[in-house]
Design a protein around this nucleic acid. Structure first.
Lengths: 202, 202
DNA sequence: ATTATCTATAGATCTATAGATAATGC
DNA sequence: ATTATCTATAGATCTATAGATAATGC
């Protein structure tokens, strides 16, 4: 039941990909190593040949989301609108809200991360910096205080998604998303975009 | 080892209070019923005389935070500044960030709540509505779109706190809090308030 | 010979319950 | 007699490891 070196590397990547999805869907404590390995088509015990611990995997998961920018750039390149507008509309879309497993790391795992090991928090922070830098580059309007405005924008986006997922009233949930979209895009915001195209990743 | 009816009621309240703190500090899965009861000075088995399940307690915890407004009103009444300014400054203070157990329910338990039972989500939603209404009443400036602006403000506050707690760099963490404070209060914001007075509850 | 994976299990938890205990309150 | 609490434990998990297995790659 052994496997080639290349196959083993592919298996490892698959474990990270599955973990990334499952952690975001169910939270760190909501995913058992055995479940995860089953999702990846492998057995429980095999996990520890690839990772030192579940926490080490979590750290790698946070770091592996570091290519967010590439994904967002690919997504925005397809559209006519400015990247900032696409980002805000996709991020605050019902689709993104309803697919946490394929969505933003920060909205899904920030609270878990705050209680995690230093390694996990460090990997998370690095990925967050990239996200904030991307927003800063894309901000419309005057160039002053870009960084400050980018951090405020990131907070609004993450807060809105987190709250819209927790609330049990669909109407209130949409209201939260719309409120922040209007705040960030002003009256420019198109009515209800967001339902076409790829799901928003990260 | 029995106890009077009044004492039993007090014990029940103490369990809710302790749970409220522990859940916010460690998350729902991070608190064992046995730990919680020990914190309340009772034994593990006694729990099930008061609550049907751990989830039922979680729901009660969310509902019990419904008196947020009273607490915030008491806190703001002590100050000279307008309530909205006090709210924003206290909410985004390092003190609040560093004491999740005594802080905002939404920043601490939204992600857990999104995966909880309908009962928990419903109780949470009721408490969130009260919070949003309070912000709407306190919003400065023009009266138009109060509700929309209140929801956007709540998102910014919650997002900022969540992110500032997850990040491992104290400087970046403060930068996030400051960015949102400036966004919400404008240049009016005093330099560094936030370190005196009672910890921000809810 | 090396090593990626599998089977089986040790050792810790954790929720919830059953039955005993002892003080309250009719 | 009722009932709030305690002791003890059943039944499920969950992380991590030990040892076996079998295909790869020098």
């Amino acid at each position: 039941m052994r496997v080639s070196r290349a196959q083993a590397a592919a298996n490892r990547r698959r474990i990270v990909t599955e973990a990334s999805r499952l952690f975001r869907e169910r939270g760190y404590d909501g995913v058992a190593v055995a479940d995860l390995m089953k999702s990846a088509g492998l057995t429980h015990g095999g996990f520890y040949g690839h990772f030192e611990s579940k926490e080490a995997l979590m750290a790698e998961t946070c770091a592996s989301s570091g290519d967010i920018r590439t994904r967002w750039e690919r997504l925005t390149a397809k559209r006519q609108q400015p990247p900032f507008q696409v980002l805000v509309e996709q991020y605050l879309s019902p689709r993104h809200r309803d697919q946490p497993g394929h969505g933003c790391l920060f909205a899904a795992l920030s609270v878990d991360t705050a209680r995690q090991t230093p390694e996990v928090r460090h990997a998370y922070t690095g990925t967050f910096r990239k996200f904030a830098d991307m927003i800063a580059d894309w901000l419309p309007g005057r160039r002053a205080n870009r960084r400050r405005r980018a951090l405020a924008t990131a907070s609004s986006l993450v807060g809105a998604l987190v709250l819209s997922r927790a609330v049990d009233d669909p109407e209130l949930s949409s209201e939260i998303l719309d409120a922040v979209r209007q705040q960030l895009l002003g009256a420019t915001a198109s009515a209800t975009p967001a339902s076409s195209g790829k799901p928003a990743k990260e």
